[in-house]
């Protein structure tokens, strides 16, 4: 089933053309990896789906970006509720300067949920989902900054899961983490894809190969190749892809 789709998506930052005519379909309950060298537009592409690009001044977005077949850039789209249905994980762990509990509860509270018992339960299940519960259950009231980097990142994932999105967008989620924390997050992705559609931007090709079902290779704002991960890494159709994944440029 097609969860996310772009049709001729173009993005301009002022005069520079950051994304060129991207047409792509992303299936639900899969992990799709976006790879490519820095500045190729993969993060910009990712941020189309929760309209985070809207925050940038002088940006112009053209084409159709569809979630469940609905154009999310249509006039009258409620951006806040759109973002509620897409969880986002960032490069560096970015917990709020609040307690561990309040970090996870934040998304619920800003969306108008006040039922304490419901929040309690949702926070607990979300933290359990990211396998962090045993590590933090005794210090939920402590500041989230007291956790290690890897724990913080899992907390951020729990925070995103708490509002029960259907899509999780990950923007290089392990680039600031040590290998052990990285493998924990990767395991988590594998479990999460049963319930969510995951799109991950990564610089790490091994990671893309390990976690994703499909991979898209971006270069200079263009989508060069998009296929099953196995196929893209073992038998790329296009020379540029071949050169990139073998490390000849990047």
């Amino acid at each position: 089933m097609i969860k996310l789709e772009t049709i001729n998506a173009n993005v301009y930052y002022g005069a520079s053309h950051a994304l060129k005519n991207i047409s792509m379909q992303l299936e639900s309950n899969t992990v799709t990896a976006l790879i490519g060298p820095s500045g190729c537009g993969k993060s910009t592409y990712l941020r189309l789906f929760n309209r985070m690009n809207d925050l940038i001044e002088n940006i112009r977005i053209e084409g159709e970006i569809l979630i469940d077949g609905k154009n999310i850039y249509q006039k009258g789209t409620n951006v806040d509720s759109l973002r509620k249905s897409t969880g986002m994980i960032f490069q560096k762990p970015n917990p709020f300067p609040k307690s561990i509990f309040e970090n996870v509860a934040y998304g619920l509270r800003v969306n108008g949920i006040n039922d304490a018992a419901f929040i309690q339960e949702r926070v607990e299940t979300s933290i359990q989902q990211v396998a962090l519960w045993d590590e933090v259950k005794d210090k939920l009231k402590k500041s989230a900054f007291e956790l290690s980097g890897g724990q913080q990142q899992r907390l951020c994932i729990a925070r995103a899961l708490a509002i029960q999105p259907s899509i999780i967008l990950m923007d290089e989620p392990t680039s600031a983490l040590d290998p052990i924390s990285t493998s924990k997050i990767e395991e988590l992705m594998y479990e999460l894809k049963a319930k969510y559609t995951i799109v991950i931007v990564t610089h790490n090709m091994q990671q893309a190969a390990r976690v994703s079902d499909k991979t898209a290779f971006f270069y200079l704002g263009e989508l060069i190749e998009y296929s099953q991960t196995k196929e893209l890494f073992t038998n790329p159709k296009i020379e540029k892809t071949q050169n990139y994944i073998t490390g000849r440029f990047g």
Partner: peptide, 14 residues
Amino acid sequence: PRAMKEASLALGAS
């Protein structure tokens, strides 16, 4: 941090 604001917005906060 910009990331902190973005995280909040990404959670559907206005």
